[in-house]
Design a protein around this nucleic acid. Structure first.
Lengths: 178, 178
DNA sequence: GCGGACAACTTAACATGTTAAACAAATTTC
DNA sequence: GAAATTTGTTTAACATGTTAAGTTGTCCGC
């Protein structure tokens, strides 16, 4: 992974035949979306093995994690908190319920709404995973620096805010593009 | 989409029945993975409609975009640059080839390797999408501030570096967890 | 109090993420 | 130089992302 071996050892650069040409544009790997994607992937790579050992995917973990903070929550609100789209959440809840990690009932006042809560089994699972997760998070924090980490998150939050404003402003343009 | 309407308008907080309780942990929505995920999603939300109008997904765009910078590139190297896993790339290349947006051949020196390049049709498509993309990127940059954006990307890159080191150090722990 | 609009999910369909396994070609070992 | 190993790529299988459509329950105006 670190050193790239050249099996045939003949050409100096086996992969990229030609240097940059044509459209210059922004250098691709340094675009903001790629930077964010790589950073997030680097972070999640730390957590995934531990989650996997407990039979959880990242999204399932997010849901259970969000459920520990409340007694009961409605599906739509859970989607917002766990940052999942409705269809994904729907599928995952079906699975988590089948594994008895969560419980569901429909709201008395509004039969459309589903109320979700974590089960005691789910809670136990969380408690089993949390220590490792916290340890990893602590290691990341200490390596990167707590202060710097907080600053990074502030900057990310501000980016979010600014982009949310853009969406409102740029709603008409998209239609003109169709 | 913007304002959340409460249809029944009766209860003060229809979704979350109870305030926080049980395990405190880090507040979920402020975790680093969630911050990165939301930020990236906010960014991509700006680009997706334009890509969609041209019949491209984000990943397909990444691939074509990476191909414009080179004459020819091997599949593995392309996966690294476009930050896609092999299986995803394999499927997408199959599709892009069927749409005549790319061209493939096998390397003479090593029949295992595939060499990929963008077709003239693919190049035209890129050129059709690029202006809108660049405009959006420019708008983001100007809103957030070019200086600040560069700083953010530096911080993300440093985070990546630090995490890459962690992976090497923490390889033994994972096995003990199995 | 009924029909239309809306709201809260859920399903469906297709694309990608993720891990494991299959495969063929190249390299290494003995 | 044939067997064992490794490498580059694809296939398989299952989970999620994403958009559209379907279902059922509420609300609202008349």
């Amino acid at each position: 992974m670190a050193g790239k071996k050249s099996p045939n050892g003949a050409r100096s650069d086996p992969a990229v035949t030609t240097e940059a040409r044509r459209a210059p544009m922004r250098e691709f790997s340094r675009s903001l979306p790629m930077s964010l994607l790589r950073a997030r992937e680097a972070v999640m790579r730390q957590f995934r093995p531990s989650l996997r050992n407990h039979g959880l995917t990242e999204q399932q973990w997010r849901i259970l994690r969000a459920l520990t903070a409340v007694d009961t929550i409605e599906v739509t609100e859970l989607a917002r908190v766990a940052f999942l789209l409705g269809p994904s959440l729907s599928r995952i809840l079906r699975d988590l319920e089948a594994r008895d990690l969560i419980e569901r009932r429909t709201a008395k006042a509004d039969l459309r709404r589903g109320e979700v809560s974590i089960s005691s089994k789910g809670l136990k699972l969380i408690e089993a995973v949390a220590p490792t997760s916290e340890a990893i998070y602590a290691e990341i924090t200490s390596r990167y620096g707590a202060r710097k980490l907080a600053e990074l998150q502030d900057m990310l939050a501000e980016l979010e805010r600014g982009l949310a404003e853009m969406e409102v402003a740029g709603e008409a343009d998209a239609e003109a593009d169709e």
